[in-house]
Simulated assay, not measured.
Amino acid sequence: MIVTLIVAAEIAFWLLLALGLATRYLLRLRRVSTVLLVGLPVTDLVLFLLTFLDLRGGATASWTHALAASYLGFSVGYGPSVVRWADARFLHRFAGGPKPLPAPKYGRGRSRYEWAVCRRTLVSVAITLTLITVLRLFTDAPGSAVFDQWYWKLGIAAVVNTAIAVSYTLWPKQPPADAIVEDGRIVGRRIPERADR
């Protein structure tokens, strides 16, 4: 049952995102669009509540229950950035907006970008682990020891993301020598000076 709910939540997430952006830019119904986009974390909250009820009803805990909890963690940690990413591309493709900028690759711009990703990961991990702990403590479900591996996996994800952000801060990637860089992105190339003949 939980696998079916996870698949339904995944489909609902992308469907609500597409409908929300289409409503905003094609139909120009901003309030309706906002309601649809607010539905993104609500969908994952409903999935978590159904997961909780499933375990309270006597289901044996499995990795799918922890995955359902991670959906809500992802929605809170990464949801706003996913919406911004999709919004910029939808605006460009269907409403004549500017071309979205790529992620910064060099210097402080890349360091700031990696720390932003790290913050999102840490928020997502903290929420997911809290929700898994709630499932473990308040459902008394058999087999809840399966949740232990999620503490390790998510802990490793948090450490790796932090290490990546630290590495880009201490050893920033340098652009090519002839590159003109703004906020970590190459915006042009320097023309080499010609030697006088």
Results as ranks from 00 to 15, higher is better:
Ile164Tyr: 06
Leu36Lys: 10
Ala177Val: 12
Thr23Phe: 14
Ser62Met: 00
His65Trp: 02
Ser144Ile: 03
Val134Pro: 01
Leu91Met: 05
Val160Glu: 05
Ala163His: 06
Gly188Met: 06
Asp148Lys: 11
Thr130Tyr: 15
Val125Tyr: 13
Thr162Phe: 12
Trp85Phe: 15
Gly188Ser: 05
Val46Ser: 06
Leu26His: 10
Lys105Pro: 00
Leu170Thr: 08
Gly77Gln: 10
Ala103Tyr: 06
Arg108Asn: 07
Leu47Glu: 02
Ile132Gln: 05
Met1Cys: 07
Pro102Arg: 14
Thr169Tyr: 00
Arg194Gly: 04
Ser111Cys: 14
Tyr25Ser: 08
Gly143Arg: 09
Gly107Leu: 13
Asn161Ala: 09
Trp115Glu: 11
Thr139Phe: 10
Ile132Thr: 03
Arg84Cys: 01
Leu21Ile: 12
Ile6Phe: 10
Arg28Ser: 08
Phe94Lys: 09
Leu91Ala: 13
Arg194Leu: 14
Leu154His: 06
Arg84Gly: 01
Val76Tyr: 09
His92Tyr: 15
Leu137Val: 09
Gln174Ile: 06
Val76Asn: 09
Asp183Arg: 08
Pro192Leu: 10
Arg197Pro: 15
Arg119Val: 12
Thr23Met: 14
Trp171Asn: 02
Ala141Met: 05
Arg31Met: 08
Leu16Tyr: 09
Arg24Trp: 12
Asn161Cys: 03
Leu50Thr: 01
Thr4Ala: 15
Gly109Arg: 14
Asp178Asn: 04
Ala18Val: 15
Ala68Met: 04
